[in-house]
Design a binder for these strands. Structure first.
Lengths: 233, 233
DNA sequence: ACTGTTTCTTGACTTTTATCAATTGCAATG
DNA sequence: CATTGCAATTGATAAAAGTCAAGAAACAGT
């Protein structure tokens, strides 16, 4: 692994407070691998052998069942995933695939569990990371159960717009079908939800979306910090 | 706090591996309080001052938004809740109310955070508990996004039946309206879902439900261990 | 620039779920 | 034992979301 990448991983909140020795023991047995877009990284039901970290690119976490499939999260660098399965020495509950050319760091699960037992600071970092993950999932549940599809889209656009510096222009970094799956609707219904939002100043051209009247959209969306704010470290 | 109750809390996985000294420091400043049914214990948005533990009775975790309300979980003794908010020193994402006469143990949040820093074994227990909570929430998301209302009910009945020793008889420990909110449907639709399941040998009288043909129900429900199995410690 | 492929959109229709209103049925109360 | 109160059900209707099929728009490769 390149020193530069090592540093980026080291800078992750999860690893930042780790003792020098602990980190040095993880590094040599971990793999940083490059994957093309669309590669299936892990499958739900499999044993958790490695903790994964998106170092570059992006990764989709999704789940299947009842002959359906749904996106649970879309991860940007630098984010660790499937931490809970690794810690419980259990099977994955979600599958993961790359959304573009990506570099993924894989750390043997056994080493992570060891490090947790030996390094108190790391264990505390883990607690924070898991608490963050838990609360993120609670927000996803609330978003799903308390809102209609159009409300979810409206709030999603408001969040994305803010992340972009409130320019009123959003460049979708992925396909609409993925956005649909993430929002829990069919692609057809996502199109219709966009049409509904036209009345609130949302223009939608292929992969660029313009939010002209954030105030009007706010009214419809009724954003809620206890759902929409991303969990800070 | 009575010694007997103290022991029950001590026996919780979360506290079992805690050092003697750490536990002794928590105990005297914690309150074990008795509440009647329907008491609002915490409100989403409030600062997390205490870690709560259901010692007796039962507690509903629910969330509000967009002028709707939904049940996220129903907790039986002995379970700690809102651990994540306490650890992150953040606001609650869910509200909680008692569902019957209950006794709730309240431990000052600050003490929990201190204990985590000082007691490595406790910190590790916390990691396990949070990982468990995270995975439980993932399952709730999957249940919600991958299944129809009738499928959710069918699977819920299968789980409840198994928990009851597969006797084919389920005595609901709460009202149907709560079950509806938990499943994410209106009470009216829950009734209709029950009617649909009649064809699969489900009889439904007030608060007792009979599952006559679990095999037929299985076929419809398509149970899935990665959704329905409860997360073990 | 053309061709084939894929994503996205649109329309018609069905299914699922919610809403509103009314009724039933149980259980507690006096 | 009637009465009251509430949970649960039922029916009618509306809204939301899914499905299927077709067309339009973007994209990749030649």
């Amino acid at each position: 692994m390149r020193d530069q990448d090592l540093e980026r991983v080291r800078a992750l909140p999860l690893f930042a407070s780790m003792a020098e020795g602990t980190f040095d023991r993880l590094a040599p047995t971990s793999y940083l691998q490059r994957f093309p877009s669309g590669v299936h990284l892990i499958s739900e039901g499999d044993e958790a052998d490695f903790l994964h970290v998106v170092v570059e690119g992006s990764v989709e976490l999704f789940a299947s069942g009842n002959s359906r499939e749904t996106t649970v999260a879309i991860l940007q660098p630098v984010t660790a995933f499937i931490l809970a399965a690794v810690l419980k020495d259990s099977v994955y509950l979600m599958s993961a695939r790359t959304l573009e050319n990506s570099r993924i760091l894989m750390i043997p699960a056994e080493l992570i569990r060891q490090a947790m037992e030996e390094d108190g600071a790391f264990c505390q970092a883990m607690v924070r990371e898991l608490a963050r993950g838990f609360r993120t999932m609670v927000k996803i549940v609330k978003n799903q159960k308390l809102r209609t599809a159009t409300e979810r889209l409206a709030n999603c656009l408001l969040v994305m717009n803010e992340q972009n510096g409130s320019t009123g222009r959003i460049d979708l970094p992925f396909e609409k079908r993925l956005l649909a799956s993430y929002l829990g609707v069919t692609p057809e219904n996502l199109s219709r939800a966009f049409k509904t939002l036209e009345a609130y100043g949302v223009r939608n051209s292929r992969s660029t979306i313009y939010v002209d009247e954030p105030n009007g959209l706010h009214e419809l969306a009724q954003p809620n910090a206890l759902i929409d704010a991303s969990e800070e470290w």
